[in-house]
């Protein structure tokens, strides 16, 4: 635990505040025969240390937006800055947790977690000690020598989180990281994530299709429209932290949930109607 805290304290105040994300009129077109418009004109500011979720109907471009912030996709318009610097590609200042297992199967849990430190030139002993510490943090003491194939889905996802966090990234991008887990494991992982977020306070951008999850975790929820994805509404989640498990039955939570559900359903219905009309008159959807 000291490994972790020392590191946080060593950071200068300016560094600790780092992790602001600025999206200005972002447009994203996916390459293909018809340049598919995935995201249209999204602007948002995310403060350092904020936890923001993005929700919206399937195919609305929420993952696409995240991938642009990650640096895989270059936006076709607008500007995208992290701490004032334009994003040009994936980099260790942003940690990414993927939906599908992206652990290296040929490395043990310990070496998976230590990988980022190795890339940053941390010595062998120190990086293994710190990786061990992070495994403990995600509740995987004693599993260091297991290969990913020997771990359950939830455990793999925990290793994945530890791996993404060990470089102390300013921004953590998460693309439905718990989407493949069962309900109970998912709940535990959410608590674990909140716990870790509380310790390090990175900026978290969390894509999910699960409204409960977004509400439990976030300071703010960004609802996107059906495609091309635009910002439909931003909802501040003023629920007190730490949020107990039974918060999901509190009237405030239910009110917020109703509002989000209505927005997402409305958008999903629109995209369904668009789809049906496009099918009936048999012309390709305008790109």
């Amino acid at each position: 635990m000291n490994v972790v805290n020392d590191q946080a304290e060593a950071n200068t105040p300016s560094l600790r505040r780092a992790g602001q994300i600025d999206l200005r009129e972002i447009a994203i077109h996916l390459p293909g025969k018809t340049r598919f418009e995935a995201v249209r004109n999204i602007s948002a500011h995310i403060d350092a240390g904020e936890f923001v979720s993005i929700i919206g109907p399937s195919g609305c471009g929420k993952s696409t937006l995240l991938n642009a912030i990650a640096g895989y996709l270059a936006p076709s318009g607008g500007s995208l800055r992290v701490d004032g610097e334009a994003v040009t590609g994936p980099g260790p200042d942003r940690g990414m947790v993927f939906q599908h297992n992206s652990l290296f199967p040929w490395k043990t849990a310990l070496h998976n977690v230590a990988f980022g430190l190795k890339m940053n030139g941390v010595g062998y002993r120190e990086r293994l000690a710190r990786a061990e510490e992070f495994l403990r943090l995600v509740g995987l003491t004693g599993f260091s020598d297991r290969y990913p194939a020997q771990l359950s889905g939830g455990m793999q996802q925990r290793v994945e989180i530890a791996r993404a966090l060990i470089n102390n990234p300013r921004v953590v991008l998460m693309d439905e990281p718990f989407g493949a887990l069962d309900a109970q494991t998912r709940e535990r992982m959410q608590q674990l994530l909140l716990d870790i977020w509380g310790r390090f306070k990175p900026t978290v951008l969390f894509v999910t299709h699960d409204i409960d999850e977004a509400l439990i975790l976030s300071d703010r929820v960004l609802v996107m429209t059906c495609r091309p994805g635009q910002a439909r509404e931003e909802i501040d989640i003023d629920l007190p932290r730490p949020r107990p498990e039974n918060i999901v039955v509190s009237p405030e939570f239910i009110a917020l949930k109703k509002r989000c559900l209505a927005l997402v359903r409305d958008e999903a219905r629109k995209s369904l109607i668009d789809g049906l009309e496009a099918d009936r008159i048999q012309i390709p959807v305008e790109a």
Binding site: F98, S102, M119
Partner: peptide, 17 residues
């Protein structure tokens, strides 16, 4: 696998590593 390459790039892997 692209996901492994992506993950490694996020962890700061240079060309040789």
């Amino acid at each position: 696998q692209p996901r492994h390459v992506h993950a490694a790039r996020f962890l700061g892997a240079g060309r040789w590593l």
